[in-house]
């Protein structure tokens, strides 16, 4: 019995604590899409855009650094939306959506840099990229950052000599 139990424990590759309801990040992506769209519409000279961008950056940072439990949009989902829905048909590992939050954080910070330095092109480009990623996530359940990850890996190691067999 004990060996069986320990075997089961070792064969389970991911602890349940890392498993999340996949609808949570998608709901969060919908909120992010709206917030980023408003930031674009208000533009780089608007204090409202600066406020919204600050909130969005903090949300990204919480999700990326502390984990999705700390992501405020995820909290909204768990508190107000999930009780009205049934239980999720399946759970999902939190690593991919958490990585997506980190990608969003990078774009958010780039947008903030554009805003602070008066580089409007940087502001628009960074917010537009983040918006595209969030929208694809919300509308198509597609994770742009996750796909970029492999491409960056391929480029990054491209400088090493190829070990051809």
């Amino acid at each position: 019995m004990t060996t069986q139990a320990s075997q089961q424990a070792t064969t389970r590759t991911r602890p349940p604590a890392n498993q999340i309801d996949p609808r949570g990040p998608r709901f969060g992506a919908a909120i992010t899409t709206v917030v980023l769209a408003l930031i674009l519409l208000f533009g780089p000279n608007s204090p409202i855009a600066a406020l919204l961008l600050t909130i969005q950056i903090l949300a990204f940072a919480a999700g990326a650094i502390l984990g999705l439990q700390a992501q405020p949009y995820g909290w909204i989902y768990r508190t107000f939306v999930r009780p009205r829905l049934g239980p999720p048909s399946e759970l999902e590992d939190q690593a991919p959506p958490r990585f997506a939050q980190a990608v969003g954080l990078v774009f958010g910070l780039a947008g903030a840099a554009g805003l602070l330095l008066g580089l409007d092109v940087l502001f628009y480009a960074a917010i537009a990229m983040a918006l595209a990623a969030a929208f694809l996530n919300a509308a198509f359940n597609f994770c742009l950052g996750c796909e970029m990850y492999l491409l960056f890996k391929r480029i990054g190691v491209g400088r090493k000599p190829l070990t051809q067999s």
Partner: peptide
């Protein structure tokens, strides 16, 4: 509202 933002939003 600014026109550049509207254009960027629609394009994205």
């Amino acid at each position: 509202m600014n026109s550049a933002g509207i254009v960027a939003l629609v394009a994205v």
